[in-house]
């Protein structure tokens, strides 16, 4: 099979981008979407043209590096999978496929299809952890955790930090990402001492980064490669409200500066 690609090309953050159209060489329906880009890049390179820059690494849907908006949808046509797990058998011979970067103000384009997602790291640094020093942990089975709580925490912890939720949201909200982390730790007994401080610190950092507000349209959940549930946003909102009611503030001195 062959397809026509309309791909976003952009030299760097300071230069405006544009779409370029490429006819692919012969493809195999069992190829992954990224293997198709590999083949196109080999072809471009051989023809003396610059290959398309795109993010990828593990190619098994867990590292969260790959991105891409394919035909308007972050991570492509299927629910619950990342771009790297999208296969050409989902497309038809002769299709025109639109390929864009994740677009959001807090994710500036680095080059072509690669964007800078460091804002998510800074949210994590604001409070996405349990403050336990190496060596100070108690015996693991001294703290039983109900299976239901552990399973639900795992559902939230499955987030791969790709940022598709932000790219899908009309407000570029990062609520699903933040809620997943807040819920993962907040559901476990180990996470209780910092539960309210954590939610306030992470939400405040999220706002500082310029992510938008959540209006619960659910597009984030629909594109999430790990199908993280919208329920976690409700849970986070509840924790945030309780924190405000309790008058809990973020720890001082934790705010990370947002680069200009």
């Amino acid at each position: 099979m062959k397809v026509k690609l309309k791909v976003w090309r952009q030299k760097n953050a300071a230069t405006p981008g544009r779409f370029e159209t490429y006819d692919t060489p012969e493809l195999n329906p069992n190829m992954s979407f990224l293997e198709m880009l590999d083949v196109v890049n080999e072809d471009l390179t051989t023809r003396g043209l610059e290959p398309i820059a795109f993010d990828h690494d593990c190619r098994e849907g867990i590292c969260g590096t790959c991105s891409l908006v394919i035909n308007g949808k972050p991570h492509g046509p299927h629910r619950g999978v990342a771009t790297c797990q999208t296969y050409l058998r989902s497309f038809r011979d002769g299709d025109t496929i639109l390929v864009e970067p994740f677009r959001a103000r807090p994710f500036p384009v680095i080059k072509d299809l690669i964007v800078n997602r460091k804002a998510l790291d800074r949210i994590m640094q604001a409070g996405g952890f349990i403050s336990v020093r190496t060596g100070s942990a108690p015996e693991a089975n001294s703290l039983p955790v109900p299976k239901e709580a552990a399973d639900l925490a795992m559902d939230a912890a499955a987030c791969i930090g790709c940022g598709a939720c932000v790219a899908a949201c009309k407000n570029a909200s990062a609520m699903l990402f933040v809620a997943a982390k807040v819920s993962h730790l907040g559901l476990l007994p180990q996470g209780q001492p910092e539960r309210y401080r954590r939610v306030v610190a992470m939400v405040e950092q999220m706002d500082r980064e310029g992510f938008g507000a959540c209006t619960v349209t659910g597009s984030c959940e629909a594109v999430c490669p790990k199908s993280i549930s919208l329920d976690f946003i409700a849970r986070m909102n509840r924790d945030y409200a309780v924190a405000l009611f309790k008058g809990v503030g973020a720890r001082p001195g934790r705010a990370a500066a947002v680069p200009a």
């Binding site: 349990i130 942990a137 693991a140 039983p144 955790v145 109900p146 299976k147 552990a150 925490a153 476990l188």
Partner: peptide, 22 residues
């Protein structure tokens, strides 16, 4: 054995039995 203790304390959601133990 210390690794498991450390990871549980950090909030790693290991699989558990119904009694709440690992």
């Amino acid at each position: 054995v210390n690794i498991i203790d450390q990871c549980v304390a950090q909030g790693v959601p290991f699989a558990r039995e119904y009694g709440g133990l690992l």
